[in-house]
Write a protein that binds this DNA or RNA. Structure first.
Lengths: 232, 232
DNA sequence: ATTATTAATTGTCAAAACGACAATTAATAA
DNA sequence: TTATTAATTGTCGTTTTGACAATTAATAAT
């Protein structure tokens, strides 16, 4: 019978695909890898799972260490475990995708954190299977965002409908009718209209909204239908 | 800088939650654990990830070994990696859920495979965090099945609408209106009506249907809306 | 001061989907 | 021939959807 002692042991790592939104385009946060092999090549932010932490813990620790941010939206994606994915030694990696408010990160930015934002469509080639991870994460983000109100995680506390609109178009790489989008997003009952207006970028100005946190957290599992002609 | 050699190494396993349907109720397939600790206790079917296989490979191998079945519907769920989840040695486990036609398995059944079906709602207590895994798998099955036509995987090639209807009710633990269900499921265009009828269980008999494999595989990613009042 | 311009906001309407509800049909058993 | 049972098909008002256009609030130009 199989015994524990006979079984091979592996390294286990986490890798995070960190998405942000600059108001126009979807971006991801990359770092220069600090260890061999492939040192100084661009890579996802990741690290090994320590002895006293779960993979979720490890992902949060890595994010904290590399961006200074805590409590970010983090979701387990899938495990990457092809035997030869790491040339040095067998390493299985748990992929996570994270959504952060790009401005929060920029506020934290200093020399301790040598991460850099790249346009999702204009990013350097990454090491190992990280390119595949990014592709998978993007697909999963699109899937999830079509059903659940998670894209708010990439916007500031105060945001406008047009901002949200562009974000949805970016994530889904498609045009969405302004009027129908507006109707749909407000009909969720998740938005609270503020008195203040955002006057940058237009003469008329667009009203700020904030998220109704109570409803948001109460209904974070609800199936919405946020995309027209919903297909994946 | 962190080096590979300094990092701890762990065992990596897979565990499969195997769902089946006996025509009335949802069931899961359990095995008696063959190694210490907790030997002879009921557990999910699982095994360690070998040196030359991916976790997906391992899950398929385990399923083949314990049921004799190949090519079953298998989907990665999530990783279970709390440091102390295995009392002997740190082991991370990748959870999978599988959908199989219960009759196919019964056909294969012999002494080599000492697995046993249990009603999902009347199952023995399982080892480690396997109870949590079952709960998670059930939730995920419900989620996925509400959007994608995967429950067919638990039915024979020929099946009737009433069979499908009961299966949907079982998975979602709710009553579904027969007429609306029928309309919805046929409007997907995924079903092909056969001339033959199933005469067991009713006087009138119910027409057999089969899956339109072409459309099924072409549209396996399509978002359907298979549950009324869809919530999670 | 009036007008042009720009982007945000609100509005219309026909088609489709939905959900609640009941009648009909095809078989067997009495 | 009739009663019984379960499968199948049907109705209808409401809501949601998606395609499309008009109005409004501000600033810039004349």
């Amino acid at each position: 019978m199989i015994e524990y002692s006979r079984q091979p042991h592996y390294l286990v790592a986490v890798d995070c695909i960190v998405f942000g939104f600059d108001g126009e385009h979807l971006k991801i946060l990359l770092v220069k890898r600090g260890l061999e092999p492939e040192i100084n090549k661009w890579s996802l932010m990741g690290g090994f799972v320590g002895a006293n932490e779960s993979p979720d813990d490890a992902a949060n620790r890595v994010l904290k260490k590399m961006t200074g941010l805590e409590g970010v939206y983090l979701e387990q994606m899938q495990i990457y475990g092809e035997p030869d994915r790491d040339p040095i030694e067998r390493t299985l990696s748990v992929g996570y995708f994270a959504l952060i408010d790009i401005h929060k990160y920029e506020a934290q930015l200093n020399d301790d954190y040598e991460a850099e934002w790249f346009l999702i469509n204009d990013r350097p080639k990454l090491i190992f299977d990280h390119n595949q991870m990014v592709a998978d994460a993007r697909k999963k983000l699109r899937y999830k965002a079509a059903l659940h109100p998670i894209l708010f995680e990439m916007l500031p506390k105060k945001f406008t409908i047009p901002q949200l609109h562009i974000l949805f178009e970016e994530v889904n790489d498609t045009k969405i009718d302004t009027r129908n989008f507006s109707r749909k997003i407000t009909s969720t009952g998740l938005l609270i209209k503020l008195a203040e207006k955002d006057r940058t970028g237009s003469k008329k100005g667009a009203f700020y909204f904030k998220l109704d946190k109570k409803k948001y957290h109460a209904n974070s599992q609800a199936f919405l239908n946020l995309m027209p002609n919903l297909k994946v």
